[in-house]
Design a protein around this nucleic acid. Structure first.
Lengths: 332, 332
DNA sequence: ATGAAAGCGCTAACAT
DNA sequence: ATGTTAGCGCTTTCAT
């Protein structure tokens, strides 16, 4: 038994597709369809459990009620949580999420962007690598509804929901210094992303302000392509240099360092201070404890959807840049 | 400038839609389109960066190259990771994921199932709550391609990728007992799911086999609707009873208990033994350490896609039940 | 109060 | 070697 279409329903009831369509779309009254016809249709539709084909609807109306969610890695807790929050608020509006992970690779990002566009998503929420501005600029020129978060690119004007990076990092490092840290290393993934650069700047500024030596040798960049091993090596390097604190620029690298720490430097777990941009629930019970800069994910998610919604409505060009305040969570 | 359609391309090149369509779908040779025409089309298409409308394609072909991924919570690391793995292998085949989180609520699950079906997804990968067998059975009767994982329902025949629950749990508890645990509590979310029941059975069997007292009072079920507070209360209860080990039936509850432990029972962190079904990376550096039963997520993801693919191909009814072996990770 | 018909962008059987 | 045409399932304008 094939799926029923509006045509089937109409035939079986001896009505026209038009009438059925009107009623199904709650335009029965407006279109002067008699009460009994309306009831007849609704009853029948319920009886046979008719389900409209959204693809056909989408083709006709040019809108899919689908939003693309493009991030480096949907399994990263930060993106997963924001994804979940977005999913919930979008679902209330009848929108759903098509997802895509880029692994920070431009080719993947481009392919996914094309995919999203071809599938006629109504809008895009993205943590872009910003390596191919061309494509993004083209979309932007076509007024394709997009809202960016987590990262920004100075040369790309668009809608951004961001958090304060530099000052938040500076304050977190200040706190560590006030608590006694004197030799502070830094571990970061490749800072090809502007936000990461800002975080590193914050670290630098704190050292300067506190008259600590800014030692480039203590700022270690891990090799993204072999991130686990590289983190381990660089952490070892820092521990050998006897740093009393390590600053991390995102949650992924902090988690890896926690792992490496438990393997190679158990003895120093209680004497070293970890400071991480991005929070993870596990920092509450990790060993060592971590002071973290928590991004306000609920607020980020809400703003993302709000702005996207606004952009999808309005015909004028919108370019908002909203910067939210992260919160330092002190655990040690 | 509106998006170009095949019709535009055809007109601008003085050809028919058919010819253009054939060439775009690599049927140029097969359909005897001359080399020069083919080249002309391809060059032009590249020049204007024509992008086919997948919605139109989908309507015509009845296939969307979209798979629905329905889970309790996409931000749970277990589902997020499997989601990511699936995304990657599906992307290679040109498929993409539409996601939906149910929060274990039947209404949400039903709504999402309808949504997926209306959007004509080609298949479904689901960790169902199995509270509404009716809907699932209807889909199954229509041969809708579905593969289930993480949970199963004895009354529902379908394709399942599962892990061994009972024996894995039994062995994990045995290990704890061998290492000295004598009074072992259990903390679980509401075991309305068959897999959870099996895990609890495993715990029970281990106690029996080891001639330990099976005390129902030490088997605590938390209230899902206020899971954080409830976990805290129940953990407190068990600690007051002086258990020397606690068994958890999934990662979510273990993570919450770790948090509660660090708030309320710091003193006992080194004397209590945690055993968790499901692994989390953070168990490597959590405090207390946790022995965990790690599900083989890569293998689960691969099987899910393989079987789904198989089901989508074949016209016969397939019902495979694949049970994978989890692995006990000992950390203490 | 209801229906006929066109059309969204694409594919493919069937001409020519 | 290329074109004509019908049709996927729906919405909507314009008739009646």
């Amino acid at each position: 038994m094939k799926k029923k279409s509006i045509k089937d329903i109409a035939q079986e009831l001896g009505l026209s597709k038009t009438t059925v369509s009107f009623v199904l779309n709650n335009k029965g009254d407006e279109k002067n369809i008699s009460k009994k016809t309306q009831e007849k249709i609704l009853a029948y539709v319920r009886e046979v459990n008719y389900q409209p084909n959204q693809i056909a609807k989408s083709l006709k109306k040019g809108t899919t009620h689908t939003i693309g969610y493009l991030v480096p890695d949907i399994s990263n807790p930060f993106y997963a949580k924001i994804g979940r929050l977005i999913e919930d608020v979008l679902a209330d509006k009848g929108y759903h999420l098509l997802i895509g992970s880029t692994d920070e690779k431009q080719e993947k990002e481009d392919a996914l962007l094309n995919m999203f566009v071809n599938r006629q998503v109504d809008g895009l929420i993205l943590a872009s690598t910003f390596e191919n501005l061309g494509m993004l600029k083209t979309l932007s020129a076509q007024r394709f509804p997009m809202v960016f978060f987590d990262r920004e690119h100075p040369d790309f004007i668009g809608n951004y929901i961001l958090v304060e990076n530099k000052n938040a990092m500076k304050e977190a490092v200040n706190t560590a210094i006030n608590k006694g840290a004197k030799k502070i290393g830094l571990l970061s993934i490749t800072p090809n992303i502007y936000s990461l650069k800002l975080r590193i700047d914050g670290y630098r500024e704190s050292l300067v302000e506190n008259q600590l030596n800014v030692d480039e040798d203590l700022m270690r960049i891990v090799d993204n392509s072999r991130i686990k091993e590289s983190t381990q090596e660089e952490l070892n390097y820092l521990m050998d240099k006897d740093v009393d604190a390590v600053v991390f620029t995102n949650n992924q690298i902090t988690a890896l360092a926690l792992w490496a720490m438990n393997i190679n430097h158990k003895d120093k777990i209680d004497s070293v201070r970890f400071v991480s941009f991005d929070n993870l629930d596990l920092f509450d019970y990790s060993n060592p404890k971590v002071n973290s800069i928590a991004q306000p994910i609920d607020s980020i998610a809400n703003h993302l959807v709000d702005i996207l919604h606004e952009v999808m409505q309005s015909t004028e060009r919108v370019s908002k840049r909203i910067v939210l305040e992260p919160k330092l969570i002190e655990r040690l």
